[in-house]
Design a protein around this nucleic acid. Structure first.
Lengths: 303, 303
DNA sequence: ATCAATTCATGAGATTTCTCTATGAATGTC
DNA sequence: GACATTCATAGAGAAATCTCATGAATTGAT
């Protein structure tokens, strides 16, 4: 057999209290059990640890040395337990995940803010990545999950839609615009529009869908960053063509979104995970927060 | 229950080999036992440590952290075992002991030399002390034993005579002197003599014994250090009056000792130990060496 | 597609280990 | 000298741990 932490625990107790009886009481075992544990430890280490008589328990020199080592191991053990408990309760740890550029800039900041209030000590490593890279990167890096607009099926991946936004026209809350329930893509032709540059995934989805119907978006402005589009819209330069989910209400209180129809397009925001890999508790907590925050933003099934 | 080293041992094995079966084999237990231990550890830490399927055993992030801590504890445990084994076998450690000034200078150097050849890594802390202080110091300091000329009984102390030297006249190996079997104290009066100063224990013993018989030593020279007396003798300044044990043959090859009689006096060299306190293995080894080396020097019972 | 092989999980039973109670021996106290 | 305290030990019972047998999932080969 081998040295056990149990033996070390009683050993340090005896060492400190200079009494088997007292140490046993501390640990909640009987004196005889403690006596036996000490004898075992001595046998396993091959060293006398205490000179004991019925009246006194004197540590030997070897015990002095052993004590230091034992204390260290026990505090390591306690540290390990505590650390693991913190991890389990998502009170500590680190969340490494991938986010597509659009999601990272427009949608995740509010998730991050919410998460931080509940889990202030968890480190977050959000890596923004081109949407096409989400799946390959997730397979190869240490990221635990990915959030972004991904459609289709992938081997060894599970996909869960967190929210999906209808492609919308976003504009200032004018009486005119607010009165509309929706707009058609055709109507946009007559209006100044701000769309994402055609290299972006959002724009590609739009162009594909429209061209299938023989239509075409011809924006007044083309930008790279979602925030730029929104800021320009807030300035009255035109209507931003974006998924409704991408509009942070608190940041742009003057703007409202109206769905675009004919065709109605939706853009999902999905959570990707590697199959058969549990998320760390911290990641689970983060995902839960994301679900909660984003669920409130899902567009109704139709409208 | 609590985390055990056993669990950590199998945990690190599984972590390294990525296989419960292989780790179990390494530890010499069955796969099912290993599987169980991992489950226990997970339960106790409250964290999933491996994502396991029948085909793969993937450590989680928590496992990465736990592994480092576990490795540390295990290597501490091994270090402890090894260190204790070294101590037990007197391959390491430290011997702290007291020696009376005379013993320390004349008798112990050869013990130390012998001991060092057999136990090169053991540290020695020899504290030389006035003979009267041996007992009180042994009770209060961390010295494990004491060597010196002590007679009588002491509470809580055991005394063992290691060697005893007859009080002798030490002189150069002249034909005249070598022919003598012994000398009487009375004969000394006509010879030049070198004795220890009257504050020393050796001298006090002599003076007491002689005065009981109405005699008296009247030395030509009085010195403090035994070595001084011997060096002077070697120069032919006179006969040194010392216990025969105090003559290191290798250091003074020209000198020989002849016992003094009427009265014949002996001076023991004793080992003092605290009762009920085991010596450390290193100290035991040292004491064994001392017994061995000094036994060869004990004067025959009479002659 | 089927079959064999590998690997992990689980349940039952056996074994080992642990712990407790009871008791004895030693030692210091009043 | 009686008493109280403390450690050691023996025996019984409880708890744990291990092994064996088996099942389920997955991979690779035929």
């Amino acid at each position: 057999m081998n040295v056990t932490l149990r033996q070390l625990r009683i050993f340090t107790g005896v060492y400190r209290t200079r009494s088997i009886t007292r140490a046993a009481r501390e640990l909640g075992i009987t004196q005889s059990a403690a006596s036996l544990l000490i004898q075992q430890l001595e046998a396993q280490l091959g060293v006398k640890l205490f000179d004991r008589s019925t009246r006194s328990v004197q540590p030997t020199l070897a015990a002095d040395e052993a004590f230091a080592a034992a204390e260290r191991m026990l505090s390591d053990a306690q540290g390990l337990s505590r650390r693991m408990r913190d991890l389990a309760q998502a009170r500590a740890g680190r969340v490494v995940f991938l986010a597509s550029a659009g999601t990272a800039s427009a949608l995740l900041p509010m998730v991050l803010a919410k998460f931080r209030t509940g889990h202030p000590d968890i480190e977050i490593d959000m890596r923004d990545v081109a949407a096409d890279d989400l799946v390959p990167r997730l397979s190869t890096t240490d990221a635990e999950f990915a959030i972004g607009s991904v459609e289709g099926e992938f081997a060894d991946m599970t996909i869960e839609t967190l929210t999906s936004g209808r492609l919308s026209a976003i504009g200032r809350r004018t009486a005119d615009f607010a009165a509309r329930r929706s707009l058609t893509w055709d109507e946009l032709v007559q209006l100044p529009t701000i769309a994402m540059r055609s290299e972006t995934r959002i724009r590609m989805q739009i162009d594909q869908a429209l061209s299938a119907q023989g239509k075409r978006l011809d924006p007044t402005y083309e930008v790279t960053l979602i925030n730029t589009a929104l800021a320009m819209t807030a300035q009255g330069l035109g209507l931003a063509i974006l998924p409704a989910t991408m509009l942070p209400a608190d940041q742009f209180p003057t703007l409202i979104a109206r769905p675009l129809v004919r065709p109605a397009l939706t853009r999902p925001v999905s959570l990707l995970q590697r199959q058969g890999r549990t998320l760390s508790p911290a990641a689970q907590a983060f995902v839960a927060t994301a679900r909660m925050v984003l669920a409130g933003r899902t567009a109704p099934a139709s409208g």
